[in-house]
C-alpha cells in the first residue's frame, strides 16, 4: 500500500464502513456516529487516543444534524475514518486528512448513495412481481438483497480512498462532476422526483374521488406554510450573517402541526359518519318492527299449517 496503512487495516475499516450504514438504517446502536468511527479506526490503527480526539471533534461539528425523511446527510463517519487512518498511518494532520480525503470520499458517497437508493427501486419492483407469483421466500430474499447496494455504496469509496489515497478519489470525483455531470445531476433529479410515483400509486389505493377536497387542503396548507417557514428561516440566517447581535433562530415547519390539522378533520368526519350511520340505523329499526309484525303473521300462518 505504501501509505502506512496495512491491507488488513484497509479491509477491517472497509467492513466497518459497510456495517455502519446498516446500523444507521436498522438497530441504531450509535456505532455509526463519528465518535465510534474514531474509536474503531483508532483501535484498528493502534492509537485509540488520536481516534477519540478526531472522532470527538468531528462529532461536535455534526451536532444536531439529523436525517429527515430519508434525505442524504453530511457523511461525517467516513470523514472520521479517513482522518483517523491517515493521521495515525502517515502522520498527516487530521484537519488535512478531512479536507484532502474526507471531503472527496463524502462527495463520491453522495453519488453511490443515490445509486444504492435507485438499485433498491429495482428490488421493490421485483417484489411486486413476486407477489403476483405468490413466491413468498422470493419476496423475502429480494428484500434482503437491499444489503448489497447499501453496503457497497459505503464500502467502495472508503476502500478506494484507503487503498489508493486521496488523488485517486479526487480524480474519480472530478470525472463524475465534469464528464458525467449530466448523468449524476439527472439521477439526483430523478431521485428527488421518484417519491411522486410512490404517492401516485398510494393515491390509487385511497378513495381520492371521495376525499379530494382533503388532498387539496393537505397540499395547500403544507405548501404555503413550508414556503413561509422556509423564507423566514432564510431571512434569519441571512440577518445573522450580517449582524452578530441577531441571535434568534427560527425553527423549521413542524410537520406534526400539519398532521394535527389532518387529525382534527378526520375526527370531524368520524363523528359525522357515526351520526349518519345512527340515523340510518334508526330507520331500519322501524322497518325491523314492521318485519316483526310480519313474522307474527308468519307464525299465525305457521299455526294454521
Amino acid at each position: 500500500m505504501g501509505s502506512g496503512i496495512a491491507i488488513w487495516q484497509v479491509i477491517i475499516l472497509t467492513i466497518y464502513s459497510m456495517y455502519q450504514i446498516m446500523d444507521e438504517l436498522t438497530l441504531q446502536t450509535s456505532l455509526s456516529q463519528p465518535i465510534w468511527a474514531g474509536i474503531i479506526a483508532g483501535l484498528v490503527m493502534g492509537d485509540l487516543k488520536t481516534g477519540l480526539i478526531i472522532g470527538g471533534s468531528l462529532q461536535l461539528t455534526v451536532l444536531g444534524v439529523g436525517t429527515f425523511g430519508g434525505a442524504s446527510k453530511i457523511d461525517a463517519n467516513s470523514g472520521t475514518v479517513m482522518a483517523t487512518a491517515f493521521a495515525i498511518g502517515t502522520g498527516m494532520k487530521p484537519e488535512v486528512a478531512v479536507a484532502a480525503l474526507g471531503v472527496p470520499v463524502a462527495s463520491l458517497m453522495i453519488q453511490t448513495d443515490i445509486v444504492a437508493r435507485f438499485a433498491n427501486t429495482f428490488f421493490q419492483h421485483r417484489i411486486d412481481k413476486l407477489i403476483d407469483e405468490e413466491n413468498y421466500s422470493g419476496i423475502e430474499r429480494n428484500y434482503l438483497y437491499g444489503y448489497l447496494p447499501w453496503t457497497l455504496s459505503r464500502g467502495i469509496p472508503v476502500f478506494l480512498a484507503l487503498a489508493f489515497g486521496g488523488p485517486f478519489v479526487r480524480t474519480a470525483v472530478d470525472y463524475m462532476n465534469t464528464n458525467l455531470a449530466w448523468l449524476s445531476n439527472g439521477l439526483a433529479t430523478a431521485g428527488a422526483l421518484l417519491p411522486a410515483v410512490g404517492f401516485a400509486i398510494l393515491l390509487r389505493y385511497l378513495p381520492v374521488k371521495k376525499h379530494w377536497p382533503y388532498l387539496i387542503l393537505g397540499f395547500v396548507i403544507t405548501a404555503m406554510l413550508s414556503t413561509i417557514y422556509g423564507n423566514v428561516t432564510l431571512l434569519g440566517t441571512t440577518i445573522a450573517g450580517m449582524n452578530a447581535k441577531f441571535t434568534t433562530v427560527f425553527a423549521n415547519l413542524p410537520m406534526l402541526g400539519i398532521a394535527l390539522i389532518g387529525f382534527a378533520l378526520a375526527a370531524m368526519q368520524y363523528n359525522r359518519s357515526v351520526k349518519e350511520s345512527n340515523l340510518v340505523a334508526a330507520q331500519p329499526k322501524q322497518n325491523a318492527g314492521a318485519t316483526d309484525l310480519d313474522e307474527q303473521d308468519g307464525e299465525i300462518h305457521g299455526d294454521e299449517l
Partner: peptide, 24 residues
C-alpha cells in the same frame, strides 16, 4: 366511520407529503 376518517387522513397526509417530499 373509521375507514372514512382513516382514508380522509391518509389522503390529507399524502397531499402534505407531496408538498414537502417531491423536491423538484
Amino acid at each position: 366511520a373509521l375507514t372514512d376518517a382513516a382514508t380522509l387522513l391518509g389522503v390529507y397526509v399524502v397531499g402534505a407529503l407531496a408538498a414537502t417530499m417531491v423536491n423538484t
